[in-house]
C-alpha cells in the first residue's frame, strides 16, 4: 500500500474513532440527516400539483430538485471548512506540533485531516439520494461520468478556498470570517433550495459568478437530463478556472505560513 493511502487510512481511522467515541454526536448526525430529508419531503408534497415554473424547467418536482442541492451542498461546506477547523482543533489541542515533528509534511497533515469529513460526506450524499428514492425522488437518465467529474471539481475548487482559509487560520490563530461569508452567500444564491431563475435579475448576475451555482447546475443536469461533459462545458470551464487558480494558491499559502511560523516559532501558540 502506498504511503499516501496509509496516511489517508490513518487519519480516517483516527477521526472515525474520535467521532464514534461521542455516541450521541454520531446519532445526531444520522438524526439530522433524516429530519432534513423528511422536512423536504413534506414541503415537496405540499407543493405537488403546483410545482413552480422555475422548478418545472428541470422536468422534476420540488422534492427531487431540492434534494439534489442538499445532497451536494455538503461538499462545498466540508471543503471550505474542514481544513481550517481541523488545523484549529489540532492547534488548540496541541497535537499539531506533535504531528509536525514527524516526517509528514504540513501540507500532508492539513490535506489528510480532511479524509474523514470527505468520506462521511460521500456516504451522507449517497445516503440522501438513496433514501430519496425510497421517498419517491425521480431522476432522469443519469450521466454518471458527469456526476463524478462535477463532484471532483466542486471538491477541488472549494478545497482550494478551504486551504487558503486554513493558512489564514494558522497565521492569525483564530477562525477567519471570509470563508463563512462566502459559504453563506453560496448557500443563499447558489440555487441549492430554489432555482437561480426565481431570484431578482440583479441577484442572478451575482449568483452566476459563484462557483457553487455552476456546480449544482451541472450536477442537476447530469442527474435529471443525463447531460454529457461536453453539454456542460461552460459550467465545467467556469468551475475548472476557479480550481486552477484556487487549489495551487491554497497549497502554496499553507507552505508559506508554515515556513513563517517555523521562523517565528509559534506553532504551539493558540
Amino acid at each position: 500500500m502506498s504511503r499516501a493511502l496509509r496516511m489517508f487510512g490513518a487519519f480516517l481511522r483516527r477521526d472515525f474513532l474520535v467521532r464514534w467515541s461521542y455516541k450521541v454526536g454520531f446519532l445526531y448526525d444520522v438524526g439530522s440527516l433524516l429530519s432534513g430529508m423528511i422536512t423536504l419531503f413534506f414541503v415537496g408534497r405540499m407543493m405537488s400539483g403546483h410545482t413552480p415554473a422555475t422548478v418545472r424547467l428541470y422536468h422534476t418536482d420540488y422534492f427531487t430538485f431540492s434534494l439534489i442541492g442538499v445532497a451536494f451542498v455538503d461538499y462545498m461546506f466540508v471543503s471550505m471548512r474542514t481544513f481550517a477547523s481541523n488545523i484549529r482543533v489540532a492547534q488548540v489541542l496541541g497535537t499539531l506540533e506533535a504531528m509536525l515533528m514527524t516526517p509528514a509534511s504540513p501540507v500532508e497533515i492539513v490535506f489528510y485531516s480532511a479524509a474523514y469529513p470527505y468520506i462521511s460526506t460521500l456516504i451522507r450524499s449517497v445516503g440522501v439520494l438513496l433514501l430519496g428514492l425510497v421517498f419517491g425522488v425521480r431522476f432522469g437518465p443519469v450521466n454518471y461520468l458527469s456526476v463524478v467529474i462535477f463532484v471532483l471539481l466542486t471538491m477541488l475548487t472549494f478545497s482550494g478556498m478551504g486551504l487558503l482559509s486554513a493558512a489564514i487560520t494558522l497565521y492569525i490563530k483564530q477562525s477567519e470570517p471570509v470563508s463563512a461569508l462566502f459559504a453563506g452567500l453560496s448557500f443563499l444564491l447558489g440555487g441549492i433550495l430554489y432555482p437561480v431563475q426565481s431570484l431578482p435579475h440583479w441577484l442572478q448576475v451575482i449568483s452566476w459568478a459563484l462557483p457553487m451555482t455552476h456546480a449544482v447546475e451541472g450536477l442537476r443536469r447530469s442527474l435529471l437530463f443525463g447531460d454529457s461533459v461536453l453539454q456542460l462545458g461552460s459550467h465545467l470551464l467556469f468551475l475548472g478556472a476557479w480550481a486552477v487558480v484556487l487549489f495551487p494558491l491554497g497549497l502554496y499559502s499553507i507552505r508559506i505560513v508554515v515556513r513563517h511560523l517555523a521562523r517565528r516559532g509559534s506553532f504551539g501558540e493558540y
Binding site: M7, A10, L17, V18, T95, M99, T102
Partner: peptide
Amino acid sequence: FFLRLSGIENLRFFGIL
C-alpha cells in the same frame, strides 16, 4: 495526544506518520 483515542491507537497513528 489525541485524548479520546487509546494509548495504542495514538502510537499506531504516529507510527504511520
